[in-house]
């Protein structure tokens, strides 16, 4: 079990952010929502660790 990482962890953050927007380009709101849902599931499975996932859910639910 590992704690959620909250320090910067992605190299070239601007590139990643641009990629994230790019996959949504031209999609309807509904398609974007579906894509986001798939993305969350894919990433969650990749993380796997329930403690980290729990931390992520909590952080997303109450952003500070």
């Amino acid at each position: 079990m590992a704690e959620l990482k909250t320090t910067p962890n992605i190299a070239y953050a601007d590139d990643f952010y641009a990629d994230l927007l790019a996959v949504h380009e031209g999609l309807s709101e509904k398609e974007s929502e579906a894509l986001n849902a798939r993305l969350i599931l894919i990433l969650s499975n990749h993380i796997g660790d329930r403690e980290a996932l729990g931390g992520a859910l909590a952080l997303a639910a109450t952003p500070k």
């Binding site: 579906a34 849902a37 798939r38 969350i40 599931l41 894919i42």
Partner: peptide, 17 residues
């Protein structure tokens, strides 16, 4: 429903779902 359908969609080709 969005999450449910996302799970179903992924499940077809992705074992993890």
């Amino acid at each position: 429903r969005t999450f449910r359908d996302a799970v179903l969609e992924l499940a077809e080709t992705n074992e993890f779902a």
